[in-house]
Amino acid sequence: MTVANQADLAKHETTEGTRRDFLYVATGAVGAVAVAGIAWPLINQLNPDASTLALATIEYDVSAVEEGQTVTIKWRGLPVFVRHRTAAEIEEARAVPLGDLKDPETDEQRTREGHEQWLIMVANCTHLGCVPTGEAGDFDGWFCPCHGSHYDTAGRIRKGPAPKNLVVPPYEFVSDALVQIG
């Protein structure tokens, strides 16, 4: 190899990218997109399927639930409490100052106007998902036996590791007795 040739070679090996470098990078980039495109369906198949999503809305007739009674129904595979609260329980829930609450919400925000006696909540503790026991705990509401979370008569977290109040699902009263959840 002559000295001139070596100089030529050195010129090609400067930090400036060549067309070939560009082709390598472009091919690599397209390859990465293709791998991601193939990976996504393989991950997405883990998501809830159509038959699971189809069960997203249910209707429930609350007229059979007596005052002071709780019924557990199933919505999206989750247990849901339908509680017919007594006047004393509603009063107890309303008397709580918001400052005492870990996740401040008024009783009115957790019920529907004109249907305040009905407390409808997903029955999974917001800590790790156990179903709490009713009419138990230090606040007369629910007590989760798994890790010791106490909820009050409006299903609000008062004590223990759970971070949030029991979740109120989206629902509305279609009529006085019929409630649509989801």
Binding site: I43, L46, N47, P48, D49, T52, R76, G77, L78, N124
Partner: peptide, 17 residues
């Protein structure tokens, strides 16, 4: 959570995977 369980709760999809 829904991705892991394959549903809104632990169910058949969860057991299968």
């Amino acid at each position: 959570l829904q991705l892991l369980r394959g549903g809104f709760s632990v169910d058949n999809a969860t057991l299968n995977r």
